[in-house]
């Protein structure tokens, strides 16, 4: 019994362990302490979402009809694009409208989120406009569609700080009020930026870089102020920050929307005519006699450097008229 029994034992053990090792998947108990969350969208979903967006947008541009856009865009970016299409449609007789697109996704990153709204960011190269777009797609509810809600554009020559990701490859996000490791929180940075646009002499103007966007906006305001017989006023505000992402250098990229309001008070006996093809001509009456008001959205990509670094500055923007009235 001894030698044979020993060999039987060994054989039984070896066989059993081999079978156990090779048998199917053993149920694993989940980590009950793990947060309930999900990656906003995977690659397959994103491909489908972007393909649909590209097709619908191309169709809307072709028809100069903002209505289809509402199925793939929402929020400020829809307002800006719809405004642009409205301008193009009203001025179609006087200005050739020919917009094509060649959009290619360079990188897509999704954060891991524990509740709706879900969102992800795509860096897209537009070979027609020669810009890089940083586009945010959002799903506000489980029953809603994915729509694009932001699309600031940077020149191809602009270097965008790379996004930081966690160990699983998910985009690292920052709470709008969190200033950990930053020169200021995303909310504070965009508030300072809007204040700097409103008043170059304000203390807040010293907290942001006097970048090309601020200079362009001041130049436009200066041109409007120079119209004789017209009192021009301009105000700026910022919508609450929704999207802030950590960069690999420890800073943050903040996608925010600025509201700009241009007011025109016409002096008695003066009439103002707008140049052909301008947004003012499309939204305001052909001639202004009393007053006019134009509202703009500007979506900006604001870089907030890490603590001890430079000041916040805008790297990309996308904006346009969204509303207007005049008489």
């Amino acid at each position: 019994m001894t030698g044979r029994a020993g060999r039987c034992c060994a054989a039984a053990l070896a066989l059993g362990l081999a079978v156990l090792a090779g048998c199917g998947q053993v149920p694993q108990r989940k980590d009950t302490a793990a947060p309930i969350s999900k990656v906003a969208a995977d690659g397959r979903e994103i491909d489908a979402i972007y393909t649909r967006y590209r097709d619908v947008r191309a169709n809307a541009l072709k028809l100069l009809d903002p209505e289809p856009l509402a199925t793939v865009e929402s929020g400020p970016v829809l307002a800006i694009d719809a405004g642009a299409l409205q301008v193009a449609k009203r001025l179609a007789g006087t200005r050739p409208v020919e917009e094509s697109q060649d959009l290619r996704i360079e990188r897509v990153l999704s954060p891991r989120l524990d509740a709706y709204p879900l969102w992800f960011v795509a860096r897209v190269r537009d070979n027609v406009k020669k810009v890089t777009k940083v586009q945010i797609f959002q799903r506000t509810a489980a029953t809603a569609q994915w729509t694009m809600v932001a699309s600031p554009e940077a020149l191809l020559s602009t270097t965008l700080p790379p996004f930081a990701t966690d160990d699983a490859g998910s985009l690292e996000t920052i709470e709008p009020e969190d200033d950990t490791g930053l020169v200021s929180s995303p909310t504070q940075a965009i508030t300072d930026y809007a204040a700097a646009l409103r008043d170059p002499q304000s203390p807040a103007a010293q907290k942001v870089v006097d970048d090309s966007f601020i200079q362009q906006m001041r130049q436009v305001a200066g041109q409007s102020s120079a119209i004789k017989g017209v009192t021009f006023t301009q105000s700026w505000g910022a919508r609450p920050v929704e999207f802030a992402m950590r960069t690999q250098d420890g800073g943050a990229l903040v996608v925010a929307t600025l509201l700009r309001q241009d007011g025109y008070e016409i002096a008695d006996g003066v009439e103002v005519s707008w140049p052909e093809g301008s947004a003012q001509k499309a939204f305001l009456s052909n001639k202004l006699y009393t007053a006019g008001l134009l509202r703009y959205y500007h979506q900006v990509l604001l870089y907030v450097p890490p603590e001890g670094g430079e000041l916040p500055r805008v790297l990309a923007q996308y904006g346009g008229v969204v509303d207007g009235e005049g008489f």
């Binding site: 039987c8 034992c9 039984a12 053990l13 070896a14 066989l15 059993g16 081999a18 079978v19 156990l20």
Partner: peptide
Amino acid sequence: GGVATGLG
């Protein structure tokens, strides 16, 4: 496999 292992 468990049975065989147990027998061993």
